[in-house]
Amino acid sequence: MGQQVQRLGAYAVVVRGDRILLTRLAERVTKQELWTLPGGGVDHGEDPRAAVVREIYEETGLRAEVGETAHVFSMHLSDTWRRGRRVDAHSVRIVYDGWVAADAPDPRVVEIDGSTADAAWQPIGAVLDGSLPTVGLVTEALAELRPQQRQRVAAYAYVERDGALLLTRNSALGPHPGVWTLPGGGIDHGESPADTVLRELHEECGLEGELGELLTVDDHHFTGTAPIGRREDFHAIRIVYRASVPADAEPRVVEVDGTTDAVAWVPLTEVATDAARFSSLVRAAITAAGGR
Rank of each mutant, 00 (worst) to 15 (best):
I124M: 06
H221C: 07
R85D: 08
E111H: 10
Q4E: 14
R28H: 15
A262W: 04
E208I: 12
S192R: 10
R150L: 13
T287G: 06
P251Q: 06
T30I: 02
T69G: 10
D43P: 06
I237M: 12
D118C: 10
D195Y: 01
G209Q: 07
Y156H: 15
V153Y: 06
E208M: 11
A249F: 10
V138M: 01
H90C: 12
E46N: 07
D106W: 04
G17F: 06
R16V: 03
S74H: 14
G291E: 11
H90K: 14
R277S: 14
R7K: 13
H221D: 13
A154W: 03
Q3M: 15
V254A: 01
P175A: 08
V263W: 09
T181V: 03
A143L: 08
T273K: 13
A226N: 13
G212K: 03
G185H: 06
A102W: 00
R169W: 05
R150P: 00
A64R: 01
A50R: 08
G190F: 07
A89S: 11
E208N: 12
H176W: 01
D97Q: 14
V159N: 00
Q148S: 09
D88F: 14
T260I: 15
L268V: 14
D274G: 06
A101K: 08
S279H: 03
Y57P: 03
G190R: 01
F278Y: 14
E191R: 01
G136L: 07
I20C: 05
E160H: 08
G9W: 04
D47M: 12
S91D: 14
A288N: 02
A262C: 06
I56L: 11
